[in-house]
Simulated assay, not measured.
Amino acid sequence: MSSCDSCSDSSCSVKQPGQANDQQSQMRQALDRRMCGVKHKIVVMSGKGGVGKSTTAVNLALALAQQGNKVGLLDIDLHGPSIPKMFGLEGQHPNADENGIYPLETGDLKVMSIGFLLESTGDATIMRGPMKHGAIQQLLSDVVWGELDYLLLDCPPGTGDEPLSAVQLLGSRAAAVVVTTPQDVALTDVEKSLSFCRELKLPVVGLVENMSGFICPHCGGKSDIFKRGGAQKLAEKTGIKLLAEIPFEPLVVIGGDAGQPHLLAHPDSANSEALRTVAKAVCDYCAAD
């Protein structure tokens, strides 16, 4: 049985009668055909930059894969793709044939980013609204994802073109994980992300409070350098579940720069344990969906 035969999305254009009669319809069918093989789509987003969203997306994808799932990670930060560096894959390029573009694989994870399509890591991606939508549609429909349990999308900060296009293109069985840090200046912007999800009828799995306390690498003590508990207050205010409070550890930064994700390099850390908690919450949510 093909993935389209088992697709549960009643709006899927592949399941509609008739033939695609224009280019846009053909592109939509190509996208739906590819997404039929993906059980769950998780949009990792935040209204605020600098909250560790990409780090969360990378390690959450790895945690889901470690639980025996087939996982893909798509970087849709078109202007500042960081996923290639965080996996130590800078300078590598995907293979392609008549079937499409093949994502790079690292361990059990399939990874794709516009960064893999640039000639140099220093090249700028210069595009505006309609071009961004088209680029994200191509990354979703032209990439040979195969059968996946989860496809995670790492979005740039804010509620602009990239997350809007992603939500519009993904179809059903998509949900969001929203990342914040504890301080009020971040929470104010992150609340806008929750409003974005409500407006677009995108379910929210829950909130992740990142950098929730600093763990000293020397004494093991914990200091609340960005305050603590802000995400819990936002969760209570909005009715959105708080999935985990992830502490900040200097080794996370070192690993990200070195292309060694923290969950793999330090699986027994408090940070890694919190990320596995988030992964379990995502699995439980999707199982009940």
Rank of each mutant, 00 (worst) to 15 (best):
I225H: 07
Q24K: 15
A265D: 06
F196L: 04
G229M: 13
Q232T: 10
A231Q: 05
G18M: 01
R128G: 04
E98I: 01
D77M: 11
G158N: 02
H262T: 14
S269T: 06
Q183R: 15
Q232D: 05
K85F: 00
V38I: 13
G50C: 05
L78V: 15
V253K: 06
A287C: 06
A279R: 02
I246D: 00
V185M: 15
T181C: 08
S54M: 07
F214P: 03
E273C: 05
L169E: 06
M127W: 15
E90I: 02
G171R: 13
K15L: 06
S54D: 09
S13T: 08
S2R: 14
Q137T: 12
L169M: 12
A274F: 05
V205S: 02
D97P: 04
T238Q: 12
Q260Y: 07
D149V: 05
A124Y: 02
Y150G: 05
G259M: 01
L153Y: 04
I246E: 02
L64M: 14
I215P: 05
T125G: 04
L31T: 09
Q232N: 06
G158E: 04
S172A: 15
S113R: 02
C36F: 08
L242E: 07
L153Q: 03
D268Y: 01
G50M: 06
S141Q: 11
G122W: 09
E98Q: 02
G259I: 02
D5P: 06
G100L: 03
M1G: 12
Q138S: 13
I215H: 01
M131Y: 03
V179A: 00
K48Y: 14
K233G: 00
S120L: 08
S25G: 10
L251Y: 04
I254Y: 07
A270N: 09
K53T: 03
G213D: 11
L151C: 07
P156V: 06
L89W: 02
L264F: 07
K222T: 14
G47I: 00
L74A: 07
G37K: 07
H40G: 05
L140M: 13
G52E: 00
A166S: 10
A258V: 05
C286G: 10
Q29R: 15
L73A: 07
E98W: 00
H218K: 09
I126H: 03
